[in-house]
Write a protein that binds this DNA or RNA. Sequence first.
RNA 1: GGAGGGAUGGCCGAGUGGACGAAGGCGGGGGACUUGAAAUCCCCUGUGGGCCUCGGGCCCACCGCGGGUUCGAAUCCCGCUCCCUCCGCCA
Length: 424
Amino acid sequence: MLDINLFREQPDVVREGLRKRGEDPAIVDEIRELDARHRQLLQEVEALRAERNRVSKRIPQIRDPKEREAKIQAMRELKARLDQLEAELRDVEAQLWERLAWVPNLPDPDVPVGKDESENVVVRQIGEIPAFSFRPKPHWDLGPELGLIDFERGVKLSGTRFFVLRGWGARLQRALIQWMLDLHVQKHGYTELYPPFMVREKIIFASGQLPKFRDNLYHDAEEDFWWVPTAEVPLTGYHMDEILREEDLPLRYTAYTPCFRREKAAAGRDVRGLKRLHQFDKVEMYAYTTPEQSEAELQKMVQDAVETCTLLGLTCRVVQLCTGDLGFAARKTYDIEVWAPGLQEWLEVSSVSNVGDFQARRARIRYRPKEGGRTRFVHTLNGSGLGVPRTYIAILENYQQSDGSIVVPEVLRPYMGVEVIPPK
RNA sequence: GGAGGGAUGGCCGAGUGGACGAAGGCGGGGGACUUGAAAUCCCCUGUGGGCCUCGGGCCCACCGCGGGUUCGAAUCCCGCUCCCUCCGCCA
């Protein structure tokens, strides 16, 4: 949610931000009109309420029953007018809120301007694209051949975009999750949380997945439960409606959750393999900071994600998203991509975003400055640390050997108990 | 699922129709006393919003949430949510 004052005081800044994203700035005028009507009505309503309060306080002191009855009668009439105006006010307020909820965050000024993915900027690459003495296989061949991934039975159970991991294959995923959590907790300074995987609608709204991405979410037909599309959702909701203390910031959390997505918008794309699934696992990093801290925290979080890749021995690169490719809530985002030699492509395993106060406004998460004074909205940041299936792809494809075995990355060996996953 | 009890400020807790934005306490801030600290005493201390002749003033809303009754609601009525206790069921 953007600050309504931005629309009042700097509408051109909002229009410019929307244009850079490739969005229609017409909504700015729509919101300005609603806001003007809202304030007009609010003033009228408040004037009437002030009048009512003033007179009502005096009524018990009036001795003369006639005068008293006259006042009460006058207030009855005022009440009727007030009821009508209040109904109107509620209506306009709801409209204003509804429109505002659809406006995405504004890009940070130093985000490169571009229309889509093709204009993202590769910031740096860590490691070289590895050379193989044989033709590396894609994971959708390796997985079934080694008995690690059972795509067919996944489909039997739940349909397309589902899979089953088996034996060492299941163990490898569990090892990855465990290791990532340990890394973020022990080395990167995050506190581990285990949140619910289903949350209320208002929590989904607070993180910005609603109303815009309703189509991509699963929810219970009977009760107010929404399956989380990312741990970012419960991690944003965690401090909803709270006033934090500046001394406690930054607050850093990490959490493992499965993520559930309909992927309707991507129908037919990436249907093969583990690249895009209805249910996938992810370890998330999350931070609440002051506005002054958030840029540095963004860089730290990118570094934490990069380190997760490099410790696994994967070649990766950091890509800064251009304005046209930014997510709804983000004002600045870096993707981390790892090289998958079987697929011969870079895979996005992490997306790290500074959301500014966009989610904090929706979730009403504030902090009290050390020196006192008015509360301020926190900044929130989220980043994958990492998405599990794509990391899994990269491990299988990068660590495959000519004899068909998979060498286990060194950091995972204590969690796997073996150095090599043998060929079948 | 059934029965009962509850939800008040950062925390605890009073308040059952009229000066209650809310007693009292705790916590926090400032001051007096003190060489310093403690103790004691005094003062201040919720959130959001609107307006103006705007570094000051006026007003509105908020006592779990949403409606309603009333001239007037923390207080009465209806619905909902959440928490607690007991019973049932259950991994």
